[in-house]
């Protein structure tokens, strides 16, 4: 009985030590799981990736609006719709977004953007945000706003 208990204890300790050792080993040489997806080319030259991933962090490139009426409500609606698509395509969701950068090309449009922006997030899961107005026409593709995201899987 005593021998059996000792053997079981030894077994448990050995496996715990084994787990501990492998953990230390892997912590020192962390495999860099870096994936880039959705490369966008311009004139046959790769410009940027739609998203990159590291471990379970996901970085989504900025998304603008290039369709529909040129109002801030419409542009924000399209941007948030396409951002949601990009976030979900990368394996994340709107309730797992940590940080957004929001750019408008006119400071007066921030209130209009906020109305649509706020509605896009699940209750209690709004990301942190920095919002800045750029010079008129400064958002590529003549978009009235652009939003990017850092989220996780």
């Amino acid at each position: 009985m005593k021998l059996k208990r000792r053997a079981v204890l030894k077994g448990v300790l050995a496996s715990a030590a084994g787990i501990g050792l492998t953990q230390i080993a892997s912590a020192k040489s962390l495999p860099a799981y870096h994936e880039a997806g959705g490369v966008v080319n311009s004139q046959e030259i790769p410009m940027f990736s739609a998203f990159t991933k590291y471990e379970n962090l996901v970085f989504i490139s900025g998304i603008g609006c290039h369709e529909g009426p040129k109002t801030i409500e419409n542009h924000t609606k399209v941007v948030m719709r396409d951002l949601k698509k990009a976030i979900e395509a990368a394996g994340s969701s709107m309730s797992k977004v940590l940080k957004c950068y929001a750019y408008v090309d006119d400071i007066a449009n921030v209130d209009g953007m906020n109305k649509v922006y706020d509605a896009a997030w699940p209750k209690g899961k709004m990301p942190a945000r920095t919002c800045i107005a750029v010079a008129k026409g400064g958002i590529p593709g003549a978009s009235l706003c652009e939003v990017d995201a850092i989220c996780y899987i």
Binding site: L57, L98, K99, P127, A128, T130, I132
Partner: peptide, 17 residues
Amino acid sequence: EEPVKFTKLGNLIFASG
């Protein structure tokens, strides 16, 4: 000002502007 001051995942913190 931003309604959300920061978000946190594990030990990583993202603060708003």
